[in-house]
Write a protein that binds this DNA or RNA. Structure first.
Lengths: 348, 348
DNA sequence: AATCAAGTTCAAACCGCTTTGGACGGCTCA
DNA sequence: TGAGCCGTCCAAAGCGGTTTGAACTTGATT
């Protein structure tokens, strides 16, 4: 059932039917109702392909998912971010088009998606320091919103980010307040923007209390269980091990915990852990009471909001870039406690 | 730059240019080269919207991602499956359209996506027992491939699945061979098809050795860290606790491990664990030597293959349903060992 | 020299919508 | 009474490709 057929059945022109369905004012209310009723009765759905060609709008948003070419790793927060963004798109009648691309070859895809008219805008995932995509997309000219920020970008752009610096600063202060002085940072890869900001927050907090940072207690790497485990093992087995860990993800947090427990130590008593918790739906940090003490910020909510920002920009492309900074909560769980005195290794 | 402009620049008709670009035989090879060169030089990309309208094909595949309405949970394997499928689509020039939908409202989305002509086919995720989507999609008439199977479906349909029954049977046999008799099953929700098949495999293996299954050692629930932890705690604290766990996911496996370690027991020595490992990129089960003994099957590869099957069906819609059963590997890690004799709780 | 086929190119229709630019009738107002 | 306006509707022209059917060259065949 297409527009022409529907119009024929109603004895109206396609023009009028189209206008009736799209809420234009120049159509009699009684005929509009007649049209609406007939459309529903015949289960009429306008053909997206035709709408897109006629209007020149794709009614779709592109998400170019970078897959680390080296390890083929997909960012684990991606599924929940998508779920959030999807909710917004559904409300606005947009589709979500996903391209999964090795992260060294994404420029081609952005260009292509634009030139072929497949999408009206982009969400940019996982920005790096000096991320070249900002300049690229500005040149391309389609609206885009970055999930995160790209330190070093000179052009203005729209973004939604968590205050990573502040949240890791607060977490570090919290550990310092508990008496910890040997605080380890198990971070993500530090060409990622968020990871740099977290380290800055951590260092700022240490400096403010006059605690000198120990390079041996700072690790940057992939946020996997294995990565967390390996980093924690090395630190725990070294001389003067940390009494607390600040970990950039719940997944590497599991690795850190495993390392701690393998050594007969107990999280929260012998060694404290604070993780950053993206509130992933399949990786909840406890229900009523959190497992880990954590800085928490829902990545799903971020997806919802970033998509809303993009919808706003598309509706009003001339407006100035939108920017939004979310604060993470610091939630207390069962993995932090006062720094042990004496040699923690003997308290087991 | 569109087709008409390009044709004008070349002094040719749009017809000829279109045919030259699309490889039709009735065009002179020298003009074809001229066209190809001009297209490249002017960076011509045909407008997808126009192609779609003209050809009547969407050149896109729909993935309707069910989000558990109750807990808003997104299946954690989804990201890697998508990454695999995306590779295939890229090769075939198709887009991937994602809809994230509460799992009680997906019928409407499938119908809509079809009626509006947004996609040419579907991948069906996470099939249940007697999944109504099989009948729905058969009625709709678009090609589809199910990732998994739906026990109870009467209509023929295309699917790609892992031999879940067999792999859990083998894993159970392996534990029995190690002397374990109290083997716990920490399964996924058992309205999910894969979960039922895994339980069947487990029960078959026990029965074949004359071991009676203990309902107290069988748990079905969401495959989260918390879920695994809670299930394992209950079993370990009960009288006559299990000496081995068979766990449906690496994530719940982390919870099981946590429960074990909290009790001062050591995985692989005091209690054995076998997980099912989907080989998720952000959740690797070790690199050189696996952490967990596991039944392993790459969900990313499954995504690649399922998408290939769908491409084949779309190319040849009249063909009989395609079906493919993958075998999982049983890989030995560090979490299995001979059943302890005596009371394992005292061996700590 | 006329016929035919193959090779090459093009004009125009079409896909299913939106949107522009009237058309038409009835009403108000001068 | 005629001009102007408003409310309502429609024909037709896009949108940017693909595809049908025909035309025009050439060269070979008869």
């Amino acid at each position: 059932m297409n527009l022409k057929e529907l119009a024929q059945k109603l004895g109206l022109s396609p023009t009028t039917v189209s206008r009736a369905l799209n809420g234009y004012p120049e159509v009699n209310e009684t005929t509009r109702e007649r049209v609406l009723a007939a459309a529903k009765r015949h289960n009429y759905r306008p053909n997206t392909r035709a709408i897109r060609l006629a209007t020149g709008r794709a009614m779709a948003i592109g998400h170019v998912i970078p897959v680390a070419a080296k390890h083929e790793m997909v960012n684990p927060v991606f599924a929940d971010f998508i779920a959030g963004a999807g909710e917004t798109y559904a409300r606005f009648g947009h589709d979500m088009v996903l391209s999964v691309v090795p992260d060294d070859d994404d420029a081609r895809i952005y260009r292509d998606l634009h030139a072929r008219g497949t999408v009206d805008g982009f969400i940019v995932h996982a920005p790096h320091l000096n991320d070249p995509r900002i300049a690229l997309l500005t040149e391309i000219g389609l609206p885009f919103v970055v999930h995160g920020r790209a330190t070093g970008a000179t052009l203005p752009y729209s973004w939604l980010d968590v205050n990573n610096r502040r949240s890791f600063q607060r977490a570090t202060e919290f550990l310092l307040d508990l008496g910890h002085r040997r605080i380890a940072l198990v971070n993500g890869l530090e060409f990622m923007d968020f990871a740099v900001r977290r380290r800055t927050g951590y260092l700022d907090a240490l400096a403010a209390r006059g605690v000198t940072a120990d390079p041996g207690l700072m690790h940057a790497g992939e946020m996997t269980e294995l990565g967390g485990h390996r980093a924690a093992c090395a630190m725990l087995d070294a001389a003067d091990p940390p009494t607390a860990f600040l970990v950039s993800s719940i997944i590497s947090g599991f690795g850190v915990r495993r390392a701690i427990e393998e050594r007969g130590l107990r999280p929260g008593r012998d060694v404290s852990i604070i993780i950053h918790d993206d509130d992933l739906s399949y990786m909840k940090n406890g229900d009523d009471v959190p497992i880990y003490t954590a800085t928490r910020s829902s990545v799903r909510e971020a997806g919802r909001l970033a998509a809303e920002m993009l919808m706003a920009i598309i509706a009003n492309p001339a407006s100035a870039p939108l920017q939004r900074l979310l604060e993470a909560d610091l939630i207390i769980g069962q993995t932090t406690g006062p720094a042990p005195h004496g040699t923690p290794r003997n308290r087991n």
